[in-house]
Design a binder for these strands. Structure first.
Ligand SMILES: [Zn+2]
Ligand SMILES: [Zn+2]
Ligand SMILES: [Zn+2]
Ligand SMILES: [Zn+2]
Lengths: 166, 166
DNA sequence: AAGTGTTACGTTATAATATAACATAAATAT
DNA sequence: ATATTTATGTTATATTATAACGTAACACTT
């Protein structure tokens, strides 16, 4: 079970998260002969600014500040599309939002644990869940191609606080 | 494993599906002292007209025909909201679309198998998947409250046709 | 039956998310 | 240098969803 769940839900040296993500991204770009442009890098940075998914228009706002110029929606969506293609980020369908992928190299069917209270989202690659989904698909004669798996609830921190206040 | 997958992906007496859904809905309304109005019933009918999820604006179009009058978005969304509350329909987040629930009584965390080719969606309540998701959440100290689980691929029929044509 | 509160619907406007279409600029290849 | 590809700028618009406020229908009390 590959996950960034500990990290996401605890205070940590977050500068490292960002730096590591950028390094991975640059490596992947070299490998795939893709170009990491300023806009694309800025979007990736913003998506790693926190462990909370951001919407396209939140990104747009923050890009204006970061790049010090107005960016129109198509540009934002193009950068998002590019990063999605490379597997550097994911889309959280139930939130219409995007988040950096902590392990873009490993070919994974991912799962997210999203906190209803603080909005943080941890990614989990859980082999046995994926196997079970595959088995269930097989049994139904369904040819599984992709999946959206988003769990909502309370992260450890928020659950702790909630319990305390009772 | 509770599922309507066989039914969804095969030709069947679909009138029965619709009739059964309406009966269940009316029963539930009596039980909950909720009102099944013409608009609400029409939306439910439309969502059972096929086993494919429909978007709110598709519903709007079809409502115009079915009720023989123009219906504005808020009315459509109100009916959707009502049916969602009663658990009579589900929202498919990755499609922004809605579909009738085949077993609204059983308290279930559901899963959908959605065909990328024909758009049909089967619902599956799979206890061991849910248990595993619960276990994974527990391990991560995550308090699971709800889930979105949508599998995309090819339904048996479409997979069969695809194989044949190769 | 009349009055009262509640629930649902009508209507208009608008918010939020996403893409189409076409022009320009920058990078890469020949 | 020129041609080709790739990325971005720009304008307009499509798609999904909700806010706000008024009216009508229903249901309960008296
Ligand atoms: Zn971090
Ligand atoms: Zn939290
Ligand atoms: Zn049917
Ligand atoms: Zn199909």
């Amino acid at each position: 079970m590959l996950t960034n769940s500990r990290l996401v839900h605890q205070t940590h040296d977050h500068g490292r998260c960002i730096k590591a993500a950028l390094t991975r991204a640059l490596d992947l770009c070299v490998e795939r002969k893709a170009r990491m442009t300023p806009t694309r890098e800025a979007v990736l940075r913003l998506l790693w600014q926190s462990h909370q998914p951001l919407g396209a228009y939140q990104l747009q706002d923050q890009l204006a500040t970061l790049l010090d110029k107005k960016i129109a929606p198509p540009t934002v969506y193009r950068a998002i599309e590019f990063l999605l293609q490379l597997g550097l980020i994911h889309r959280i369908a139930s939130l219409n939002a995007y988040i950096g992928c902590p392990f873009p190299n490993s070919d994974h069917s991912n799962l997210f644990m999203i906190c209803n209270n603080c909005g943080s989202a941890a990614e989990v690659a859980h082999a046995s869940i994926n196997e079970l989904l595959q088995t269930a698909s097989d049994k139904a004669n369904f040819t599984l191609q992709s999946q959206t798996l988003e769990l909502f609830g309370l992260c450890p921190q928020c659950a702790y606080i909630e319990n305390k206040s009772k």
